[in-house]
């Protein structure tokens, strides 16, 4: 049991490392949010499940920690993305479409 938990914790930390790598490699802010702040959610879930297996008496608090991460993480990345868009953050050259900017232009065009 302890062994399984330790291996799960190792898998979680490898996911952390890959998302840190994504933060370095991605070309613009939106893609960094994709790989950075959200891939860590799965890492935290796996690592906490691993620790639940090692210490069954900690399960209650670790479940609260998982719920907390799952509820707050999308909100913070959504707020950062929206702030980036409305403060005029550039998108990478590879971008193939931007419906939100077009929508905003339509609104301004029709009084």
């Amino acid at each position: 049991m302890e062994m399984t938990g330790a291996v799960l914790a190792l898998i979680g930390s490898i996911i952390f490392f890959l998302s840190a790598l994504g933060l370095i490699r991605m070309p613009d802010l939106y893609n960094r949010i994709q790989t950075g702040t959200k891939a860590t959610t799965l890492g935290t879930i796996i690592l906490s499940i691993g620790l639940c297996l090692i210490h069954p008496e900690w399960t209650g608090k670790l479940v609260i920690l998982i719920l907390f991460i799952v509820l707050t993480n999308p909100i913070s990345s959504h707020v950062v993305a929206r702030g980036a868009h409305y403060s005029g953050q550039e998108m990478t050259d590879k971008t193939v479409g931007d419906a939100l900017t077009e929508e905003d232009k339509d609104k301004e065009g029709t009084p």
Binding site: P27, N31, V96, G97, L100, T101, E103
Partner: peptide, 9 residues
């Protein structure tokens, strides 16, 4: 890096 990003509605 294989990405093809867009903002879609």
């Amino acid at each position: 890096v294989r990405i093809n990003p867009a903002i879609v509605e």
